[in-house]
Design a protein around this nucleic acid. Structure first.
Ligand SMILES: [Mn+2]
Ligand SMILES: [Mn+2]
Ligand SMILES: [Zn+2]
Ligand SMILES: [Zn+2]
Lengths: 135, 135
DNA sequence: TCCTAGTTTATAATTATTCTAAAGTAAAAA
DNA sequence: TTTTTACTTTAGAATAATTATAAACTAGGA
């Protein structure tokens, strides 16, 4: 993803392409594979991989702004920290509790044959499959 | 579940049947249907349904002791609070984000036809299906 | 260039949870 | 039964993740 695309992505989401947002967006979106992270891990990686300084509040603000704009999704993982995901398609996860690592599973690689119908008056929004791993 | 069974359940888990543990255990386990709760909701319900007073720390201690003993399980739900579950069998959940309510799905009511194999060197510990509901 | 709304930032506040250590209690030992 | 012991409860302090605040800064339009 080129710089011009980052600008477009931000602009089209109503987000000013500030120095901080552009750097964080480049870090998050200029990659081939899905990236799963917490705010803490992102903070550390940004400190290591960039020369700029980011206030922790800015990382929170930016991640939330990106999520709200639909550029990030949130994955529910056991533990206190919130996990974010650059993969915003419907997909599933392996979770390795040893390493606290998430691994994507393409939606097509999971086929559910039978599922109960939603309770009265409710509809199914989506189905998430979470596969816990062990050694 | 009778009082004597509560005592057995506690004793056999190496937990002294104190006044607090017995009351909380009766509240949690003397019911027919699964009960899902957070420490906060349990605290409020205990305050309403019993005459005893419980320190919040005691509720945390007790819930963790019960979980460690295998009498409660933990369910991962989006949000900051930890959800506990009196259903300790393998099962799945509907989640109604409007009401923040969990509804059990029997493991037999979900049949998965296809699942990817675990990454190298890892095995599948368990598969959790989480069905988000909407109106 | 000037203005303004949006943004960043340091810091404080909040919230859920865990820790601490003193007081209380269940059950084993005497 | 009393004594002793380890376990438990408790109020309050501490911690950790996140959110709120408000002052300083900045992007982009007028
Ligand atoms: Mn979580
Ligand atoms: Mn949660
Ligand atoms: Zn993912
Ligand atoms: Zn359940």
């Amino acid at each position: 993803m080129k710089k011009i695309d980052i600008f477009k992505k931000l602009r089209s989401s109503g987000l000013r392409p500030t120095k901080q947002r552009v750097e964080i967006a480049k870090f998050l979106f200029e990659r081939d594979k899905t990236f799963h992270f917490t705010v803490e891990s992102l903070d550390k990686l940004l400190a290591k991989k960039t020369t700029s300084k980011f206030a922790l509040a800015t990382i929170y603000n930016t991640v939330h702004a990106f999520k709200k704009a639909g550029h990030l999704s949130e994955v529910e993982v056991r533990g206190k920290k919130t996990y974010f995901d650059t993969n915003i398609t419907n997909h599933h996860h392996f979770y390795d509790s040893e390493t606290c690592e998430l691994i994507d599973i393409d939606a097509n690689d999971v086929v559910i044959q039978k599922i109960p119908k939603a309770p009265n008056g409710k509809k199914i929004k989506n189905v998430e499959v979470f596969i816990n791993l062990k050694n």
